[in-house]
Amino acid sequence: MNKVVANADEAVKDIPDNAVLMLGGFGLCGIPENCIAALIRKGVKGLTCISNNAGVDEFGIGLMLKTKQVKKMISSYVGENAEFERQLLSGELEVELLPQGTLAERIRAGGAGIPLFATPTGYGTEIAEGKETREIGGKMYVFEKWLKADFAIVKAWKGDTLGNLVFKGTARNFNPMMATAGKITIAEVEELVEPGQLDPNMIHTPGIFVNRIFKGTNYEKRIEQRTTNKV
């Protein structure tokens, strides 16, 4: 078994135009910076990107919007990006907004082999339009379908060469579910170690879900809202 690839360019080299991608992260926290840069170098077009947010103008998925590589975004909140707004209003970009918990669960369901589930979220709102609803135990629920991707691209703190992953802080967010829901899952990590160097008790994503792994470089980890106290 060899899951290790040399770098981001090798990891994304077979991603074709019009692919459906999942990209981990919440805001700019826990995003696969190296793979985003490699996708831009590769110039792949017509992408559908499933990601909680769409980055900011100068970083994250925002960079791929600027190069017009994204056809459609599936997200829960996209308010931090002026280029996104421009492309949406001009009709260049399609967007599907989903409640954050529904987005997370649809991805989880995709990875877990659950094609349909019922959630109270969005009942009676425009999110439920066209979807099956049903009363269960006196409460109304909306049926939601699983989400899957051709390629899931995640970022972890540490990983081993078998693809086992450990996340740090709130950079975990959507990454573990997305790792389960890609036909091919690519993981970029800050530290790549040999099997046995990660404590099996502490592994968040077991290697079975990961197809390719590489050690990323030059992480910028930009902060959107640097908020501090004096003391």
């Binding site: 926290c29 740090k168 902060i223 809202q225 908020t227 106290n229």
Partner: peptide
């Protein structure tokens, strides 16, 4: 609470994307 400058960690934010 929000961190003091020396504690800022880009891998630790709230839902408003604040450190």
């Amino acid at each position: 609470p929000f961190p003091v400058e020396s504690e800022v960690d880009p891998d630790l934010i709230n839902a408003g994307k604040q450190t």
